[in-house]
């Protein structure tokens, strides 16, 4: 089996593990009775969510849209930069140097600067999400664009194909599997970026919910936000994986799924 969701047995296994962990957590809180401010039981977290579902869902939606905007921007910019890097030595030197320097800075430390520049709206949050997510997109896309069979390029050149045709017909499709590897990393980083932005200056989003709850020592609400974040991150990851399966049925990693009859 290729993916954990590729069969109902796999899904059942995942759900089973989750339920067992929740049951154990609930039991442990009952038996050990830690102060609620340290660790609330799952039942309490659920009750807190049900008391104000609108509040939590609205803020989840805010974080989700920030994440998606940051992710989409990273993919577009990242692929563009990767194409430039592959096509020009000068671009490679400039972009790589800047990207590596940027990536070695802790982005949390840059976040306040973005707030100064862009205000407290959604823009600085998207910018931080992009900064976190774009690196893996660029690196993996460059790898994919470069790892083309030289004979395939030779074939194109013998037939007088333009560099643009070589990019569109050979290099780019060849880079797609690698781009998806980058996207699966980037989607999680975009979510982290959105939360970081909300921590630094926010009036909405799950990061903001966590900050407010922390100020009120409402540990249970912190956990509601954490659980929602976990669910959000997981769903986003599997959506990227599902799109990958849809777009790349030809790739080695997908064949077992695409053709279970083994033809």
């Amino acid at each position: 089996m290729a993916g954990m969701w590729s069969g109902s047995a796999g899904l059942r296994g995942t759900l089973g593990v989750l339920l067992a962990v929740i049951a154990l957590w609930e039991a442990a809180v009952w038996v050990l009775a830690p102060p609620p401010i340290i660790l609330p039981p799952p039942s309490r977290i659920w009750v807190d969510f049900v008391e104000a579902p609108g509040y939590f869902l609205r803020n989840s939606w805010y974080t989700l849209s920030t994440t998606l905007a940051g992710f989409a921007l990273s993919v577009v910019l990242g692929v563009g930069l990767a194409v430039a890097i592959v096509n020009s030595r000068l671009a490679e030197r400039i972009i790589y140097t800047l990207l590596v320097a940027l990536n070695s800075l802790p982005k949390v430390a840059l976040a306040p600067l973005f707030v100064i520049w862009m205000g407290t709206g959604v823009e600085p949050k998207i910018a931080i999400a992009v900064m976190l997510a774009i690196f893996s997109i660029v690196v993996d896309t460059v790898l994919g664009l470069r790892s083309v069979d030289p004979d395939a390029i030779a074939l194109a050149r013998v037939n007088h194909a333009s560099p643009f045709k070589i990019l569109v017909k050979i290099r780019f499709p060849n880079a797609l599997p690698s781009l998806f590897v980058g996207m699966k990393v980037a989607i999680s980083f975009a979510l982290v970026g959105a939360i970081v932005g909300e921590f630094v200056a926010g009036s909405a989003g799950l990061g903001f919910v966590i900050l407010v709850a922390q100020g009120q020592f409402d540990t249970s609400r912190v956990f509601v936000a954490l659980v929602l974040l976990g669910i959000l991150g997981t769903i986003l990851f599997y959506i990227v994986e599902a799109v990958e399966r849809l777009l790349l049925p030809w790739h080695v990693s997908q064949r077992a799924v695409a053709r279970p009859d083994g033809h």
Binding site: D151, A152, V158, I170, P173, L176, L248, H251, V252
Partner: peptide
């Protein structure tokens, strides 16, 4: 007017 065949078939998987 050249045609070329290599040892590896270089067919594109997609």
């Amino acid at each position: 007017g050249l045609g070329m065949v290599f040892q590896r078939d270089v067919l594109l998987d997609w």
